[in-house]
Design a protein around this nucleic acid. Sequence first.
DNA 1: AACGCTTTTTGCCAAATGGCAACTGGCGGC
DNA 2: GCCGCCAGTTGCCATTTGGCAAAAAGCGTT
Lengths: 189, 189
Amino acid sequence: MDEFLAYLLQFSLLNQQQLDFIASKATSLSLRKDAYLLEAGQVPRQVGFVLEGVIRICYYDNKGDEITRNFIDEHRLATDLRALEYGLASSEYLQAVTDCRLLVFAKREWEELAHTIVGWNDIMNRITAQHLREKLARISPMMAQDATTRYVEFLENYPRLANRIPLSYLASFLGITQSSLSRIRKQLR
Amino acid sequence: MDEFLAYLLQFSLLNQQQLDFIASKATSLSLRKDAYLLEAGQVPRQVGFVLEGVIRICYYDNKGDEITRNFIDEHRLATDLRALEYGLASSEYLQAVTDCRLLVFAKREWEELAHTIVGWNDIMNRITAQHLREKLARISPMMAQDATTRYVEFLENYPRLANRIPLSYLASFLGITQSSLSRIRKQLR
DNA sequence: AACGCTTTTTGCCAAATGGCAACTGGCGGC
DNA sequence: GCCGCCAGTTGCCATTTGGCAAAAAGCGTT
C-alpha cells in the first residue's frame, strides 16, 4: 500500500488524513499468469496498481492477429481510465504476463475518492498525461528505426522487463515477427 | 478567436465573462512556411493555437537525420506544454509546414489564465491527455503494419493533411524513406 | 521561353524482414 | 527415464524496404 501512496505523492501534496482515506479504499488482488484483469468488450469496473508482476495491453487486429501494445510493470496503473470514466467498453485486453499482485480500487470507491479528495481528478490527469507522454516518447522514435535498434532500445528502456516476457509478446510489441527477433538476438551475441 | 473558445467549450463549462477574459489575453501571429514557432534548446514562451495551416513537430536523431514526429493542423494547440510549465528547454522543433495563422498566448498571460480561471489547469490536463491518447492510438498500431498500410491509414486519419505536406516529411513521419513512399503511391494508382 | 531551384519519381542492387515449417531444448507430469 | 508440450531457434526462399544516384516534374523568376 505504501508503494501506491508514495507513487501518489510524486504527483501531489496529500496530507496524512487523505492518505489514510485512500488506503482504506484499496483491496488487493492476485492474478495468475495469463489471467485477464480486463477483457475487450467489458466495461472496466476497477483500477489496478501493479505491486509485482507484468501485465500487457493487447488487442486483435483486423486479420485476427494478436498485437501487444504495451507492458505495465511494477508501480504503474493498470486500467482503461478513459473507458472507466465514461462507462465505455474497453477495446483492449489487460492480461497478466507473469503472476501478479495488484492493489485494486473498485469503480465506486475510486469515484468516492474523486468526490472526497480535492484535486483528485487533477492528480489523475497529471498521471495520465505523464504516462502517455512517456509511452509516446518511447514509441514514436521506434518507427524510424530498424528492428535491431528497436530491440536494443527496448532493453535499455525496460531493463527489468526483457527476461520476464515471452519472445512472441515482445516481438509483437516491437512490430516484428518472432523469428526475426530470435535472429536479432542471436546476432547480438 | 471564436474558434478557440469553441474548442475550449468542448472540454469545459466556461461562462461568458471567463470567455471574454480568455479572449483578452490572446494575440495573433502569422508564420511563413518553414519558419519556426519553437526551436530545440529554447524555453517555450508561448502557447499557439492553429487557426490555419500546418505545423510539424520534428527533431534530429543521433545520426543527424531529421525526423518528423507529428503534425499539428487547424484547431490544435502548438507548444511544448510540459517544457512551458516547468520552464525547460524543448527538445523539439515546431516548424510551419505551410504559411500559418495562429492565436498566441504569451507565457505570462497563459499563467494568468491559470490563476484566474478556476479549473484552467484541469481543462489543460484534459486536453493534453486527450491529444496524447489520440496520437498514441494512431501511432502504436503503425509499427505492426507494413508501409503501404501505414500510408493508407494516414490518409484515412488525416484526410486534410496529405496534400499539404511535402513527401519527405510524411515519409519520415511514417518511418519509411521518401523513395519507398513514392513507390507506394505509384502502386496505389 | 529559359533558367535555377526544389520536390518527386525511377532504376538498380543490396540488405532486412516475413512466411512457413521443421527442429531443438527445457520442463513438468507420469 | 520417457513423454508431451511450449517456447525459442533455424533453414529456405519470397517479398519488402533501403541506399544511392540519376532523371523527371513542378514552380517561380527573369
